[in-house]
Design a protein around this nucleic acid. Sequence first.
DNA 1: GGGAAAAGTTTCCTAAAAGAACATTCAAGG
DNA 2: CCTTGAATGTTCTTTTAGGAAACTTTTCCC
Lengths: 204, 204
Amino acid sequence: MEPIQSEETGLAPEASEAPDGEVLGKMIRDARKEKGLTLEEAAKAAAIGRSTLSKIENNQTRPSFEIIRRLMQTLELETPQLFVQSAQSSISGRRDYTLSGRGEHQKTKTYDHELLCTELTSKRMLPYISTIKARDVTEYDSWVRHRGEEFMYVISGDLVLYTEHYRPLSMSAGDSVYYDSGMGHGCVSTSEEEAKVLWVSLEI
Amino acid sequence: MEPIQSEETGLAPEASEAPDGEVLGKMIRDARKEKGLTLEEAAKAAAIGRSTLSKIENNQTRPSFEIIRRLMQTLELETPQLFVQSAQSSISGRRDYTLSGRGEHQKTKTYDHELLCTELTSKRMLPYISTIKARDVTEYDSWVRHRGEEFMYVISGDLVLYTEHYRPLSMSAGDSVYYDSGMGHGCVSTSEEEAKVLWVSLEI
DNA sequence: GGGAAAAGTTTCCTAAAAGAACATTCAAGG
DNA sequence: CCTTGAATGTTCTTTTAGGAAACTTTTCCC
């Protein structure tokens, strides 16, 4: 149901593998369920038809931008999510290497929360993996805060990222976040087992 | 042009004073002009019709979400802008936080590269996941090279990282490397299945 | 279980978006 | 001026979204 290509442009819709085909509907349904709303309640709140919402959730239609906008407000969805697509993964063991100048790459011992590179002074980004114990915060009672930007990727487990300015964000394996690390933040593992997270931090 | 209310819901569309009515079109036109594209070029790049784009820019239509998504990619528009009511476009506000949670990531036109964040302009690091097809190089025939640093983490699969100055490096799930991306580099998947790699790139 | 009520899905129809073709405007040269 | 070609705007047609209502499924009491 997508051959939306134009004769005029002659372009295939390659540039458009997006939330639509698969995940958009699920995303919205999840958000609705999470708020404990029925189709009717949600539809009413967003001022759209019940059937329309149903079709959207089942990916049976390509909603208009306007409709999506209303749903976003109603379900309090974060915008970027909608434009983004899925990836998932699982990992096993790990070794790390650091390639720097010219010469050899060296192996760093990686235990549990460990740096993923050596020769820090020559690098601007700081990659490391953290293991977050079940139901335990990474850093206690206060926000972690350091001028710069940070990218986080959940390798395994489930966790919640708390931030100073936003609602808590539930994440699981394969999810990622990019945020301003000057904003207070912290994690709690919500899975039974511990969660593994890859961080790449960039100081200003 | 707004009586979009439903008999069923009986709700007025109050909850929706958004970019549509006035600014959406302007926003898009501005973005296009800024990139120095003509209607035709932009439309082609976004795989939509020229006339459609014209109508959108003149607010003569309520584009579908899909269409907006493509335009966003093409024009590299910031997502939130589109949803923010602000009739006035002072987007200056802070923008920390790009979620790509719940397993959704934006896919870029770069075939199997999936960007893990949006609003690129506001970020210094560029995180993305690449799927490397079995026995296929990521980038063909020549080294990839771009001033800056790069961190790579193997999510799944086996691969070999070839670099200009070093011996090929075999890596598998969980391994990571940090290197100067100014040095030519490229990957080949050595596993039967495709390999998934997480990259975080930092330009100088 | 059986029957109601609620939740969700599908159908049908109307209104509107998307694309192609046609029309217009605009900028340069002659 | 008056072309000429590029860029944008408008008209026309086809396709599809969106809503109401009919229909199906699920839930949950009795």
